[in-house]
Amino acid sequence: PVSLPPFFMRGSIIQLADGELKRVEDLKTEDFIQSAEISSELKIDSSTVERIDSGQTPNAVVIQFSVGELKAQVCVEVLGEYPFFVFGQGWSSCCPDRTTQLFELSCAKLCVGDVCVSLTLRGMR
């Protein structure tokens, strides 16, 4: 699993596609949808959590997603505290307590059936 990027820290400044600046903790589902709508390259996909298993290292988890209309199966291995953005809910991780502790980012528990925001390239299907 990759080390955790700095932009999940509470207070990080995020630039939306229209140039607007928001703090990471203030992002809403619509911000991602609207940003993708004006992006020429990126498209939002809905990725449903199908399985969550433990990974190779103690804090790692393997999350299996069903991605997009084609329901492509994609597995990612991340640290348990890595947050995903769930549609209509916001930031969620497998270890929300650790996410909150490390990033001060308030976080729900990521569960099987949650639908996460993910990206694909436009023109790819």
Binding site: P5, P6, F7, F8, S12, I13, I14, Q15, L16, A17, L21, V24, L27, D31, F32, S35, S39, L42, D45, S47, F65, V67, G68, L70, A72, V74, V76, F84, F85, C116, V117, S118, L119, T120, L121, M124, R125
Partner: peptide, 19 residues
Amino acid sequence: VPVFPWHSLVPFLAPTQSD
């Protein structure tokens, strides 16, 4: 203060290319 692009925050999950 660093500014991060919105698309860094969500994973790029590419489905296997079909047709």
